[in-house]
Write a protein that binds this DNA or RNA. Structure first.
Lengths: 235, 235
DNA sequence: TAGTGGTCTAGACCACAGA
DNA sequence: CTGTGGTCTAGACCACTAA
């Protein structure tokens, strides 16, 4: 029993010891490990403490757990990367650059088909269309191209996004139950290249995000980032 | 007290109810919520149950918790997206396509500077360089361009990656303590375009990943995906 | 220094899925 | 049916930090 890890809490020590045994192949991939009760005895702690350690490792993908059949070391550890999705302003300020914002378009318009499809609405519905440019130290950072479901958020009609970005107003004013997000890539079009200060066909990083209130779509946004943008995470 | 949610366990019901109060603005952004003990009384459950609910919401970014000053509804909910990083083979098989693999290069070579820098090694060190193409239904899916630290993993020298990809062999054979991952974008070069069946300068999605055993870098890999590749997650 | 979240314990019951 | 993980409880002590 080697629980002398430097980690603070007991369940973290247990977790570190279990990780060590997995790492050193003392417990091999696919192999069953002792059950919680036995480990609690070995580690001289409550079973709940072992449970928390093993549950955390299972969440991280290192263990597979099933009732009755027990806990096994994962054969193919599906690691998970957690990405932070902050406000654009916060992201820029976090890198110690000065944040700037320019509204380019705010108008009611017929939604393109891919948007009305995504929202599950008829194709002749008017939605609020907003395009804006966020800058860092005065340089283009990201284009925000957003559609808002005005029937779900009528109060948005009386808001001006000249000073406050839709990104920020929505986060502060409109809660949502869930959303989906996709990371992709595109070749810059003429207008995108002009706005971002680069040449057409340059490869640009793109994020599409749609948020929902239960079954009602609230807004969908396409973010197109400046050349060289990367998103980092740890495993 | 409305704990009649359809969720199963008690802490999930508590969490759902707290989420509801946040969502309906019964508890407004920035506002303090009752402490765990009071909530436990209100919900007629143990404090630990409330703790698990609130801790989960804090992990998700909806609450800010501090000792002594208590729990507040987050002002800027920094949502987190969790991306699955599976084996390439598993990812392809999960979309019900047939997986294929072609080794293009396996040789000892002088590492380019960005690799020896990343590994913290001298610039004249020989590393194992592997390039391979993974296919889905016979069509190019992703180029795997990998450098392996042979001094940390000497046994890799006796492995042939003609049949089994380095991606797969490493996951099965070489555990790691941590890693970092970056998502980015590039314009296809001539060779990349040829391998992926597209034209040069097309925008391609790229993932760079480096894994470590404590302070020792094990391997770094660049994955360049086929045109149109996107990575999805939920919020 | 006092209030709050973080953790730990021993014991209990439950839910699920193999044998 | 039975073993295993999942959860819950009441009570306790600890760690941090704002007042």
């Amino acid at each position: 029993m080697a629980l002398n890890q430097s980690s603070r809490t007991n369940w973290q020590k247990v977790m570190a010891e279990v990780e060590r045994r997995i790492y050193t192949r003392e417990w091999q991939p696919g192999q069953s490990i002792p059950n919680e009760a036995d480990l609690a005895v070995e580690f001289r702690c409550a079973r709940v403490t072992v449970n928390r350690a093993l549950r955390t490792l299972a969440d991280a993908g290192l263990l597979d757990r099933r009732r009755k059949s027990g806990t096994r070391v994962a054969l193919h550890p599906v690691r998970k990367a957690t990405l932070q999705i902050p406000l654009i302003r916060k992201e820029i300020e976090a890198s110690k650059k000065s944040y700037g914002y320019n509204l380019l378009l705010q108008e009611l318009a017929l939604a393109p088909e891919f948007v009305s499809d995504r929202f599950g609405l008829a194709s002749d519905v008017l939605l609020l269309h907003i395009v804006a440019l966020h800058t860092a130290n005065g340089k283009p950072y990201v284009i925000e191209d957003r559609w808002i479901n005005v029937s779900a958020i009528p109060e948005v009609m009386s808001v001006s996004f000249a000073k406050l970005s839709a990104n920020e107003w929505l986060v502060q004013s409109i809660p949502y139950t869930h959303g989906d997000i996709a990371f992709g890539v595109l070749n810059a079009g003429k207008e995108q290249a002009r706005l971002l200060g680069t040449e057409p066909s340059k490869a640009l990083f793109e994020i599409e995000r749609t948020t929902w209130d239960h079954a009602t779509a609230l807004t969908t946004v396409q973010l197109v980032f400046h050349v060289g943008y990367r998103k980092h995470a740890s495993l």
